[in-house]
Nucleic acid binder design. Structure first.
Lengths: 211, 211
DNA sequence: CCTACCGATCGGTAGG
DNA sequence: CCTACCGATCGGTAGG
């Protein structure tokens, strides 16, 4: 097998087609889960949007739950790694403000995580463990970022990293709810940036995604 | 009809029983909607929990949607009015911190609003209009509270009421998500109070629900 | 308030 | 990858 223009050809041709279909399924599933939640989404509707029968879809993902987890893991791979890798301290927080600005151009992704995180607060939900783990990791990352920022001397006095981390993550989630319910008439990134700026002794960069 | 010990008797007896059953249905529906959302809840399950057949339930609430809206309006009557009436400025914000502390003793109510507000961000959801309206009203109330607090001279300089209101409401929602996903190991009211305190020039009261 | 039923839809499987 | 089917469950109605 060799690659040409990112597509594996010859012996791998069938596999490449399968992988492309897999990506299409993940995209359509992400959109529908975001529109109506996990429970509200049907395999038949997702399959139809991909030009498949629903047993055809189950050939790629054996159960509905496996499709859900694949969607969530796919999003994490694409996003978190890209915007947060190799950063420490204030740069992590700036990266999360930039991620919020980016998400304002991707309503489908905001809907996905807002609808599913609400649904998954219930103990029996198939993504409950995933979200519980995800929040623990995220809060810890943000907490370390605040600790480092404090050590770097850019934080206002009296700011506790643990509480500040919980507040920062809560703000991101709560602003997404308001953004969706106000039909996107809300500057999520601006409001988040204002919150962060008020905790700092130095000005944040202008707000682009530059390091 | 006359009332004895809060229960209407004699000619009103049947009505009182009907109203008691209605309240029982509202309570069980609130619990199940909170556990599994609107879509995940079935009329049969709610009815069974009340000792009814599901057509029996539909005698009290003609459609599933009417039951949902009745549950939401019932909660608003009981809560918002009681804790926020007749307050202005900082007292409104203090009332919301106290409401958060109260909610930490009522997981069912927190689940209800967290699950449903996520579900209802979708445009077609039967409670979408309700939540859109509710957030607009809440944000405006909190914004006016910040404006009044600023006029009263208890706010740190540079705090904009509009952004501060969005932040405050977002924090309440986001902390509820984290609270549920961390199996209630989180001091929601304490973290919210710390956020508010950092914006003030005066100390908040000790944190009881005293005016 | 009940039993009995309607048509629709669900996730998943059989068999090819 | 398909058609055809499974048992289960859904919201709502008929009729009493």
């Amino acid at each position: 097998m060799r690659k040409v223009g990112g597509v594996t050809v010859q012996a791998g041709r069938g596999y490449a087609k399968g992988r492309a279909k897999r990506r299409e399924i993940l995209g359509q599933a992400m959109a529908l889960f975001g529109e109506v939640g996990y429970r509200g989404a049907s395999l038949r509707e997702i399959a139809t949007r991909c030009g498949l029968s629903h047993p055809g879809l189950l050939h790629h993902f054996p159960t509905k739950q496996s499709l859900l987890l694949a969607v969530l893991e796919h999003r994490d791979e694409v996003d978190s790694a890209e915007l947060l890798s190799g950063r420490t301290g204030l740069a992590v927080l700036r990266g999360l403000v930039d991620l919020t600005a980016l998400n304002a151009t991707r309503p489908g992704i905001v809907e996905l995580f807002t609808v599913l995180s609400g649904e998954a607060t219930a103990a029996g939900h198939p993504a409950h463990a995933y979200f519980a783990q995800r929040y623990q990791t995220t809060v810890r990352t943000v907490e370390h970022a605040y600790e480092q920022a404090g050590a770097d001397g850019v934080l206002q006095p009296g700011i506790e990293a643990a509480a500040a981390a919980r507040q920062f993550v809560a703000l991101m989630d709560g602003l997404q709810i308001q953004w969706l319910l106000s039909h996107r008439r809300l500057d999520m990134a601006g409001i988040l940036r204002a919150h962060l700026q008020a905790q700092l002794t130095v000005p944040l960069a202008a707000g682009s995604s530059l390091g």
